[in-house]
């Protein structure tokens, strides 16, 4: 058998594909079948089971904003996941309340997903409702006007196009709002 794989390219090809597919299928096709929470949109009405709320699909305007977020590559520097680390839940928190960790059921409608791999800027998984439109307008024009020391590039063309600006802000205000976890008062004063 080994000799055959050593001298016959067909055998070698077949065996290397079989080995590849064992791991390939067990880690890509099987997990969503085993863990059904990946595909079930978040919904909870019972406060005893954790934060209540319901995940709703984005509307037309918010989806448009999401496209801009993708086009400008925001997701290269901003992750969208509050990980199971204490510091993450504090950093994503709001007015002294820790944020719940991100769970798969909060991202069911995300296509493409924007979890991200690099956190050059802060995580945005719970940013919705924290900063108002005027804050975002100033910040997109020049981030350093609001956050000295920031290295985020300015995005003046987003502010100048009123429709695009409205869309991207509308999208960002949805982030992390499926779970109703925090004090009511929106926006930084």
């Amino acid at each position: 058998m080994l000799r055959k794989a050593d001298t016959s390219a067909t055998w070698a090809a077949i065996i290397s594909l079989v080995l590849f597919f064992i791991g390939g299928i067990l880690t890509t096709v099987v997990p969503p079948l085993v863990d059904t929470t990946w595909a079930k949109p978040f919904e909870n009405a019972d406060p005893a089971k954790g934060p209540t709320g319901k995940l709703t699909p984005l509307n037309e305007l918010q989806l448009q904003g999401r496209q801009i977020y993708i086009r400008e590559g925001c997701w290269y520097c901003h992750t969208q996941q509050t990980r199971t680390l204490l510091a993450d839940t504090k950093r994503s928190g709001w007015k002294g309340v820790d944020s719940p960790v991100s769970t798969p059921d909060e991202f069911v409608y995300d296509d493409p997903h924007l979890f991200g791999t690099k956190r050059t800027g802060p995580d945005l998984s719970r940013v919705g409702g924290k900063y108002d439109e005027q804050w975002h307008r100033t910040h997109f024009r020049n981030p350093r006007d609001l956050v000295p020391g920031s290295i985020m590039p300015p995005y003046p063309w987003l502010v100048e196009d009123a429709a695009e600006f409205k869309a991207i802000v509308a999208y960002m205000q949805t982030l992390g709002r499926a779970k109703d976890w925090r004090p009511d008062n929106d926006y930084e004063e």
Binding site: F20, V108, H113
Partner: peptide
């Protein structure tokens, strides 16, 4: 051989999935 299937997963299979499932394929 592997590139063929890895590339198909990353560029085509992801189009039929969303959320965490898609992230896993990605």
């Amino acid at each position: 051989l592997w590139t063929a299937f890895v590339y198909l997963t990353g560029n085509f299979a992801v189009l039929f999935t969303t959320g965490v499932n898609q992230a896993n394929l990605n």
